[in-house]
Computed example of a mutant assay.
Amino acid sequence: MDQLTLHDLQCYLALKYKKRGTSAALFMKLVEEIGEVAEVLNQLEGRKANTANASLEKELVDVIHYVVAIASINNIDLTKSIIEKDKQASVKYNQSPNLAEFLVALKK
């Protein structure tokens, strides 16, 4: 299988939703998908009868799809934003390594 980067996915979704996607419409789809994740988790943890062929994997992919699509049509570089947000959280919660440090160590 081919490697997929977050940047690749953002470029693809920006193209896909360029003319027909609005942040509000994509957000409403995201909320739907989060509800579907909740349904699957309830089924998997026995709080709800398993009424369908529930797939946590598929529902999580849908959530990621819409989050990345919203970022893409708003020209947000998620890779940069995730790394920066993690640096801030690492300082706030006194955690080490941060994501940037982890990535450097991973490449060694």
Rank of each mutant, 00 (worst) to 15 (best):
55 S>V: 07
80 K>D: 03
80 K>I: 04
63 V>A: 06
103 L>N: 03
57 E>M: 07
50 N>M: 13
86 D>Y: 03
25 A>S: 15
23 S>P: 12
10 Q>H: 10
70 I>W: 02
88 Q>A: 11
17 Y>Q: 00
67 V>Y: 12
63 V>H: 06
64 I>H: 09
102 F>D: 00
2 D>Y: 05
40 V>T: 13
18 K>L: 08
9 L>I: 15
43 Q>T: 08
4 L>H: 13
64 I>T: 14
72 S>F: 01
80 K>P: 00
37 V>T: 12
18 K>Y: 09
35 G>T: 11
105 A>I: 04
43 Q>P: 10
70 I>L: 02
72 S>Y: 00
23 S>F: 05
21 G>A: 06
105 A>T: 09
71 A>R: 01
78 L>A: 03
94 N>D: 12
47 R>I: 07
13 L>A: 00
12 Y>E: 05
55 S>M: 04
54 A>F: 15
86 D>P: 00
80 K>L: 05
53 N>E: 13
83 I>S: 07
72 S>Q: 01
100 A>V: 03
33 E>T: 11
69 A>V: 09
16 K>E: 04
26 L>F: 03
34 I>A: 13
67 V>C: 14
5 T>S: 12
5 T>Y: 01
21 G>T: 12
59 E>T: 13
97 P>S: 10
79 T>I: 09
50 N>F: 10
14 A>V: 06
97 P>G: 07
65 H>C: 03
82 I>G: 03
105 A>W: 01
64 I>V: 15
40 V>L: 06
96 S>R: 15
91 V>C: 07
30 L>P: 07
8 D>E: 09
31 V>A: 15
87 K>Y: 00
91 V>A: 11
87 K>L: 00
9 L>R: 14
5 T>L: 02
103 L>H: 02
38 A>D: 10
69 A>K: 04
17 Y>S: 02
62 D>C: 04
